[in-house]
Write a protein that binds this DNA or RNA. Structure first.
Lengths: 133, 133
DNA sequence: GTAGAACATGACGCTAGTGTCACGGTCAAG
DNA sequence: CTTGACCGTGACACTAGCGTCATGTTCTAC
């Protein structure tokens, strides 16, 4: 059994985040006699999964519903419909991000050009240097 | 020149949000003699762009730097490096989203199977019905 | 059994955003 | 020149998803 610090470190978050997830009903924990949280290994992946979903723009409330279905291994048609909606939501976000990436790539190109125009030799070498990093 | 209400409506936000962006230094406006904000058509796209960047996980502070560079049409190597970092950030988010979409798709399939196993005939027809919606 | 790291709980702050209220000024139509 | 919709500033409250601090308890290793 893992401590909250171990789970948090492995998942790349702070203990605060793990407690917040528990408080939000996304994550359960056992307790020691002294009241400290203990988790199975699987909690690490679960925290990472939740993080991804949150970054995808889903709220903890929405995630709670989905995870409870995954936990209980019981899915109603309603749940499936929700999952489907979330999938669309995520797909839209992904499309937005791809478009943003393209726009930023264009900005980089434009900036690159403007620098080349201003100060071709030195700036260009700067860019070349940083482009590898 | 557009009023704040026109820009907000076209960008799918409230005037409050537009003012908030101006207050955050993300958006400039001209003023009428009476002090009301007037915007060029391009402000609509700009507000949408800012919205996308915020949803991509960038802070207003970070966005402000980038946009100021875009505005002034002057880019330092440092700015380019930041843009590049942001692009990577966004690309990572996009990759996460794609992975999430796949996982949710798997959940949908799994849920579909579990329902089929539980109550093949009726539940299956439910899913088929909703799948078209 | 004691030091000190880690943990528990609770509270407050932050950002991005929404809503709302106040109170007054502006703009465009008539 | 009035009417009414819209806009201005400012303020306050609330949300999610955390960071951070305060204060006290538990765990672990020596």
């Amino acid at each position: 059994m893992l401590s909250i610090g171990a789970v948090a470190a492995a998942a790349g978050v702070t203990p605060r985040v793990v407690r917040y997830y528990e408080q939000s009903g996304l994550l359960a924990s056992e307790r020691t006699a002294g009241g400290q949280r203990r988790y199975p290994e699987s909690a690490i992946e679960r925290v990472e999964f939740i993080q991804h979903l949150i970054r995808a723009g889903l709220t903890t409330e929405v995630i709670r519903d989905q995870l409870s279905c995954v936990n209980s291994r019981v899915a109603t048609p309603d749940t499936i419909e929700k999952l489907r909606a979330q999938r669309e939501h995520i797909a839209r976000r992904a499309a937005e991000l791809n478009s943003m990436e393209q726009r930023i790539a264009d900005l980089i190109d434009a900036a690159h050009d403007s620098i080349s125009a201003e100060d071709a030799a030195s700036a260009h070498s700067h860019i070349a240097t940083r482009a590898r990093g």
